[in-house]
Design a protein around this nucleic acid. Structure first.
Lengths: 152, 152
DNA sequence: ATTGAAACGAATGAACG
DNA sequence: CGTTCATTCGTTTCAAT
């Protein structure tokens, strides 16, 4: 939270909620004129605090409404092997997130697929063909809730 | 993928990568004039296919660089109990995601916290005080990779 | 569904406190 | 840090197709 004053924080909160808001509107909400708001945003972007601006899409329409987490064990834990596996897996359409983990398994991947058939194809045609994977366990998501805004 | 032509898909791909791109720039990339691009975006918003536009922030700066997944079991699985628990837990600053799951546990929550101390405080002061939780198991994330763009 | 132009509104940067 | 103001640029609407 270093070097973020109250105005920066409010600005970040607003941009997390809707980043297509105009600078003019932001200025009103922050009780400032355009220029400081504009310059604060540019500074936050340059400092890497704002990493990007993305549109959120409805998974349903894109045939991605089924969410599955797969915990898996790996046969090799070298830095290079983990990195290679991560790259291999993140290239796959179905895989949205990769985590290298502590605990009973070594990694966790989050899948978003159309249906059970697409899941099955993923496991049989893709995951099973990656040699480093020794065993895995799938957790199917019944319902979920995801925050897109950090409390600042 | 119904009712999305190639132009819509390319548009969605571009907006997922950078939603602050101007309509003018989009028009160039799509080889169209402003109006159709403008109208396609509005239509995609109205159809709920574009759910929103958000700024992505660097967790480090916000004291959120530690990621933990907690799998947990619940003592009551009624629809209302699950809904109540979801709301209770999503209100907590540390919790970014909630999943109601199949498998060995009943739910999975994703935490983003500053450090082990913050994690510990979360468990002791918050999670342990929610009665419906009967047991839980934490998985600490060593490294991760997250996609913000669906392959369309 | 698309074009091109016109009207309007917002972003950017200079000058300054 | 901030403001105001001038210029540039993007958005939005509309007639025509």
């Amino acid at each position: 939270m270093k070097n973020l004053d109250q105005t920066d924080r409010k600005l970040l909160r607003l941009l997390q909620q809707d980043c297509r808001i105009t600078i003019k509107e932001l200025s009103k909400k922050l009780y400032l004129s355009n220029t400081p708001v504009y310059e604060r945003i540019k500074k936050l972007e340059k400092r890497g605090i704002i990493k990007g601006y993305v549109a959120l899409l409805e998974p349903e329409v894109l045939d991605r409404s089924m969410v599955v987490f797969i915990s898996l064990s790996m046969e090799n834990h070298s830095r290079d092997a983990v990195e290679k596996f991560k790259n291999e897996v993140m290239v796959l359409t179905e895989v949205m997130e990769f985590y290298y983990t502590s605990g009973n398994y070594d990694a966790l991947i989050k899948l978003m697929v159309k249906d059970m058939n697409a899941y099955s194809i993923f496991v049989q045609e893709k995951l099973s063909k990656i040699d480093i994977v020794s065993r895995f366990n799938s957790t199917f998501i019944i319902s979920s809730s995801v925050k897109t805004v950090f409390d600042i």
